[in-house]
Design a protein around this nucleic acid. Structure first.
Length: 485
RNA sequence: GGUCCCUUCGUCUAUCGGUUAGGACAUCUGGUUUUCAACCAGGGAAGAGGGGUUCGACUCCCCUAGGGACUGCCA
């Protein structure tokens, strides 16, 4: 049997980081099994679904490299098929028409809520109230589930699933284990609205079946829904998929991830925080899944090793420090031109002169190992992008004392005499200068660094000189050696 | 309220009845050093609490506490 997995977001917003992770798991599993990974847009809520949201989700997925193997299926195009299945279920006795109105249902919920508040306020309820509340809180059973109960003439009806009166329903789940619930705890949920449109519970099942989905991997907020959906498979005598309900991602404080925590949308991780997609995949994979002590798991290994049974049950928290360290690893591995392109397309790097731009490009092999992400890359490159005259930090200023200025003035001609401006040549000249003057590098290095970088983070001083280029390096030195000698 | 699920260092996790409870990130200390980073060496840091079962429990069972999910003619 060929494995077919899917990711089925509802397009009511951006792609959530938690959704991205379940998509990753589905994608990896399909890849691991040589199967297919499909996308389905659950846009049956016309009020809240938008095209920009669909675009944002597809965009986020493709950035992460998690595109579907076929064009995405729009759930809204399948309403007729959903209705057809609902009616078939009625025909089979697994569902029934119900004339209880939305208003009546709402009244029940309102009453239950009122009684709950009353209980909270008065700490106890009268016997009658308590019984009434217990009744209201019980799973809903419509009077129309009785085949003998006549429907009112001309009444608009919904189609409800008929939950069995007795027994348990058991869901085998790769993550949650085997869990049972009594049918008595499940209500006769609506699968077809009074306007004939399908509800989510029906649509997912029908689409998953028709798309040939063999493995459903989704957030565990859907776990209890599985018990509502299974009876539809049973009623249609369809083969049920293999389930894996993965825990949700929580914020650093352990609460369910929300906007309050900052980055929840995948595009923020790319556009604002500056992470690389391969790093996101690696980090997200390790959140809730592990393979022994392995931390750095490139795609190839991930596909080779990924398995559903390795998933954890407990929700895990987002840790940006760890994400940074994973990202740093992948930054160092990334192609220079690719990083250069990514960084220069960010808003904070606009307006660079061609000269500075080329300087960055040439320095990329050294720069990329010094930043955890593209958002902090600018700081690592600042010693190259700052314009003269360089502003010194107080600590740097302290290095530029009278003695240091004299040494600088003496060093300048020696450097100017260099015919080749390269790291080895500069290194050799600096060493020679120190030897001739009987001083250690410590006598010249700090001041050089101070005036060349202003105190910004920078690599080895020889490398700084080389990367700045002859003209810029001399200019920066002269800015401070001026008036000495 | 009901049903279901979760709980190992600060964080992500290993362990699948017998380990000095391991690794990674973070953190701290020392080293190297021309800054920061990197790098090297080292340190501290965990089984929510309470009962069982067992020769032996992080691992199995129960209770408590804390967290979460669901309980819509939303998805």
């Amino acid at each position: 049997m060929t494995v077919v997995t899917r990711f089925a977001p509802s397009p009511t917003g951006y792609l959530h980081i938690g959704g991205a992770r379940t998509a990753l798991f589905s994608w990896l599993f399909a890849r691991a099994k040589g199967g297919k990974f499909l996308l389905r847009i659950e846009d049956t809520d016309k009020e809240r679904s938008t095209q920009p949201a669909i675009d944002a989700i597809i965009d986020g997925l493709s950035w992460l490299g998690l595109g579907g193997d076929e064009p995405p299926l729009l759930q809204s195009t399948r309403a007729d098929r959903h209705a057809e299945v609902a009616h078939e279920l009625v025909k089979r006795g697994a569902a029934y028409h119900c004339a209880v109105t939305a208003e009546e249902l709402q009244a029940r919920r309102d009453e239950a809520e009122r009684l709950q508040k009353k209980k909270a306020a008065e700490s106890h309820l009268s016997h009658a109230d308590a019984e009434r509340m217990a009744d209201l809180m019980r799973p809903f059973r419509s009077p129309y589930r009785d085949p003998m109960m006549p429907l009112p003439e001309g009444a608009s009806t919904v189609v409800r699933l008929r939950m069995p009166d007795h027994g348990d329903l058991t869901v085998p789940d790769h993550v949650q284990g085997t869990v049972s619930r009594a049918y008595a705890d499940l209500d006769d949920l609506i699968i077809l609205r009074s306007d004939g449109t399908p509800t989510y519970m029906l649509a997912v099942v029908v689409d998953d079946h028709d798309m040939g989905i063999t493995h459903v991997i989704r957030g565990d907020d859907h776990f209890l829904n599985t018990f509502r959906q299974l009876p539809i498979y049973l009623g249609m005598e369809w083969r049920t998929p293999d389930y894996s309900h993965v825990p949700l991602i929580h914020g650093p404080d352990g609460k369910k991830l929300s906007k309050r925590h900052g980055a929840t949308a995948v595009d923020e991780y790319r556009d604002v925080l500056g992470y690389l997609p391969e790093a996101m995949r690696n980090y997200l994979l390790r959140l809730g899944w592990s393979h022994g002590d392995d931390e750095i798991i490139p795609d190839g290994k991930a596909i080779e090793w990924f398995d559903l049974d390795g998933l954890n049950k407990a929700p895990s928290r987002l840790d940006f420090a760890k994400l940074d360290s994973v990202n740093k690893h992948y930054m160092a591995l990334a192609d220079d031109e690719r990083l250069f392109g990514l960084w220069t397309s960010r808003p904070e790097s606009q307006g660079l002169s061609d000269e500075v731009s080329q300087r960055i490009r040439a320095a990329m092999p050294h720069l990329k190992t010094r930043a955890a992400n593209l958002a902090t890359f600018g700081e690592a490159a600042r010693f190259l992008t700052d314009l003269r005259p360089i502003q010194l930090t107080d600590k740097a200023k302290a290095q530029v004392n009278a003695e240091a200025r004299i040494r600088l003035a003496a060093l300048l001609p020696a450097l100017e005499a260099l015919t080749e401006w390269s790291e080895p040549a500069i290194k050799q000249e600096l060493d020679q200068f120190c030897a001739q003057n009987g001083i250690s590098m410590g006598k010249i290095g700090p001041v050089l660094r101070a005036i060349l970088t202003g105190g910004a983070p920078a690599p080895d001083i020889t490398l700084v000189l080389a990367l700045l280029g002859r003209n810029e390096a001399f200019a920066r030195i002269k800015d401070f050696a001026h008036g000495v000698s």
